[in-house]
Computed example of a mutant assay.
Amino acid sequence: MLVLGIFILIVLVLLLFSLVFLIKFLLFMFKRLRGKDAAFATKGVRKGVFGMFGFLVLGIILIVITQVTATTPKIAKQDSIAELREVRLNGRKEWISLRGESRNKPVLLFLAGGPGGSQLAATRYELSDLEKNFVVVNWEQPGSGKSYSAVSKKQLTPEIYVEDGTALVRSLLKEFKQEKIYLIGESWGSALGIFMVKQQPELYHAFMGTGQMVAFEETERIDYDLAMKLAKENDDQKIIDKLIQNGKPPYYGNSVTTKSATYLNYLSQVMARNPEIQNAGFQTLRDLSAKEYGLLDKVNYLRGILQTFNHVYPQLYETDLRKEYGKLDVPIYFLLGRHDLNAPLSLAEDYYKKLEAPSKEIIWFEHSGHNPWINEQERFAEVVQQIAEENK
């Protein structure tokens, strides 16, 4: 989020300079119009207007070209699949990537965090080992990245994610002629995965949740209190003041994202400084520059994080998996980072104890925080493959 903030700041500064330049240009020409060089100034204004119009047209053309040419890199194998594809799910236009060294391998669907997060590039970089044994499908959920405009924000609900996710699974099963798929969900995606397997358990070999979310409002309160505690221990007065100013969650209105980011970003920074955690943090600029995203997608990548989260997250406050999802008919695995500060481990362990499932297991990643699939990517891929072998 810190890198994301810097990126947004740079974009805003460039826009500001452009606006200032335009205002100065128009004022200059207005003065010339009032002086002796009126004819020259009028001609200059016309040239300036045509120039700006031409610049706008070129900009639109560039955006269209980058959108049309967005792709996912090929895989150099004879029977491989590497596609970036638009799909219709319940009448909505959404996007997926499909990557695997063989089309005949089992299908593995990855559910990104958020709501509003896009991880097309991140999973390609971090989970490429899974492409050896699976057809890895990454779904751009409504309100994120390439699927940002799939649903009006006012209409976007958790139920739509479940409906469209299930529709996607059914289409994948039909295309690849398989009876079931494997499902991985990270952070918000870990809750969405639980919603999906509860509704249609017959579609899944197993579910794997990492950065497992359990009770959303309780999580926010725990995270806020932990951030305050750590900020006091580290004498981070700016964070303390900001947390006090924001007040305790839950938050509503237009500032949900920014207020939540105060403690979530702080906890992420603490994890990034933890020497026990390997490869801490997302590489946002690397992911934003990836081939999967056109220029408009890059903008929507940021809008999803800021706006979709703001709208959808408050709808999840009342969700507590321990109360509504205590019995599942699919093997369940929690792949948890030992040093996760964003998704309270106490809640995941409590849910695990109460959960009834055909089989269940917590697998600990000793050198991970909230994102074991990034922190310990090689071991994560090995664990996923082992789970798949156990649940064919």
Rank of each mutant, 00 (worst) to 15 (best):
Y182I: 12
S102G: 04
E218Y: 06
E389T: 13
N375A: 09
D129T: 08
D350E: 14
H367L: 02
F30H: 04
F28R: 07
A343K: 15
I60R: 04
Y182P: 08
F309P: 04
L243I: 08
Q385M: 09
L84Y: 08
K229D: 11
D235K: 14
L2P: 04
P372S: 03
S190N: 07
K174L: 06
F216K: 12
L26R: 03
P106M: 05
L321E: 10
K146R: 15
Q78K: 15
T258C: 03
H205Y: 06
R34A: 12
Y148F: 12
N254F: 06
D340V: 13
R92H: 12
G51L: 00
G193M: 07
F28P: 01
D37H: 09
Q237M: 10
I244A: 11
L84P: 03
M208F: 02
L168E: 01
M228H: 10
Y325T: 13
D37V: 01
L173Y: 00
G165N: 02
E349V: 11
S147P: 10
K93M: 08
D236G: 09
D235I: 06
D241H: 07
T72L: 11
F53M: 12
I222E: 14
S149D: 14
T66L: 04
K198A: 08
F40P: 00
K74R: 14
S260E: 07
L16K: 15
R124E: 15
R273K: 15
S152G: 14
K354H: 08
S187V: 05
V270K: 13
G113V: 09
S289G: 10
N371V: 12
K154D: 11
K360P: 06
Y251D: 01
T123L: 05
L230K: 14
G247M: 10
P331D: 02
Q155H: 09
L62T: 11
E382Y: 02
L15I: 12
A343E: 11
K105S: 14
A388C: 02
N138L: 09
S346H: 11
N342H: 10
E126S: 04
A206E: 05
L288Q: 02
Q67A: 04
K232G: 03
K259I: 10
Q155F: 04
G44Y: 02
L26H: 00
A82T: 01
K238M: 08
E376R: 05
F365Y: 00
M213F: 08
L2G: 03
N254R: 12
N246G: 09
L130R: 02
K327D: 12
S187P: 04
A280E: 08
I8A: 11
E220C: 10
Y161G: 02
E276W: 01
G59C: 07
S268K: 13
E94V: 00
G59R: 07
I96S: 03
Q67T: 09
Q377H: 12
F134C: 14
R92G: 05
T257R: 14
Q78Y: 05
